[in-house]
């Protein structure tokens, strides 16, 4: 494979001002806009019920946008579903496959729809996953079901692989299989992966781009490097114990107590440093927070704001 920059400007999927309501009260997606660059691994993170699955279903054309636009491969999934779906390999959250079907039947059934289906690759995956072709799906474990679903999503070598919570409730071995599949997919030139997950260290491992959704709103959407560069975690020490958290400009979350505090900031690091010094605290350590820290800090601020 060749090296290539992730800032390849071709776009595979594009969502613009997407809003979706269920009923009158539930706002599943609120003015979400994002772009999935070609050849990238795009991680969609957010707590349960944040709207990740709803977003993916819009990309698949299962939901019609109430307002805003959705484009996949430059087409609308509603208007040209067969064009869009031909290029997508999809693994659903609950691996919903009919229990009566056998694995070879499932493979035979699925291959009929994709002209690019690769029989040797399907065979290879079947062997790698150690799946019995005669086994009925209802006799499979959750992990095997995910593997069977993954096989049908991968074997036509789709330009866009959509994985909805692929690792939820699976053991480490199957999770490895799934991550490996993601890596092999992007390692093939020009193919793109979009996956949602709440396992943040997994996302941090494989994702180039991250979109963080919280209660239907897009909180953060950038490349992982940019996110990492932007956020800082500062460890403070003060001589006189503080009784309440200090106000630091750009702070997403302030944790700790007494003499020792940790501040997670976004962007304006210089301002934060000056503010901390004027408060009379010393900065012991300045590190890059992990994605999990950022996620926790982000959702933390949200709740504080709502209280205020």
């Amino acid at each position: 494979m060749s090296e290539r920059t992730v800032a390849d400007h071709e776009t595979v999927a594009e969502v613009e001002g997407l809003t979706r309501r269920f009923g009158r009260t539930t706002l599943a997606l609120d003015n979400v806009s994002l772009r999935v660059p070609k050849g990238s691994v795009f991680g969609l993170v957010g707590e349960n019920g944040a709207g990740k699955t709803t977003l993916i279903k819009h990309l698949l054309g299962q939901y019609k946008p109430q307002s805003g636009t959705v484009r996949v491969f430059g087409e609308s999934p509603i208007e040209a579903p067969e064009k869009v779906l031909a290029g997508i390999g999809y693994l659903s959250e609950d691996h919903d496959l009919p229990g009566w079907m056998r694995i070879d039947e499932l493979i035979n059934y699925t291959q009929a729809f994709y002209p690019d289906w690769d029989d040797t690759y399907a065979e290879h995956l079947l062997k790698t996953f150690e799946l019995q072709p005669e086994a009925k799906i209802k006799t499979l474990s959750r992990g095997q079901r995910a593997q069977a679903g993954l096989l049908t999503a991968l074997a036509h070598r789709p330009p866009l692989l959509l994985l909805d919570e692929p690792s939820a409730g699976l053991d480490a071995v199957v999770r490895r299989d799934i991550l490996g599949a993601v890596i092999r997919t992007v390692a093939d030139e020009g193919r793109t992966v979009l996956f949602s997950s709440h396992l943040l260290d997994e996302v941090e491992r494989v994702a180039d781009y991250i979109a963080m959704i919280s209660k239907g709103k897009l909180v953060l959407c950038d490349s992982l490097d940019a996110i990492k560069a932007k956020h800082h975690s500062l460890t403070l020490h003060v001589e006189q114990p503080w009784t309440k958290p200090p106000t630091v400009p750009g702070a997403l979350a302030v944790t700790g107590g007494g003499r020792d505090w940790t501040v997670v900031t976004d962007g304006r690091i210089e301002e934060a440093r000056t503010a901390i010094r004027t408060l009379g605290a010393t900065i012991l350590e300045e590190t890059t927070p992990s994605l999990e820290d950022i996620f926790v800090a982000r959702s933390g601020r949200r709740s504080i704001l709502e209280e205020g």
Partner: peptide, 15 residues
């Protein structure tokens, strides 16, 4: 109940 619709509606064929 058994959720087989993804086998039909998510395939690249016209409705």
């Amino acid at each position: 109940q058994s959720g087989q619709d993804s086998l039909v509606y998510l395939k690249p064929i016209p409705f």
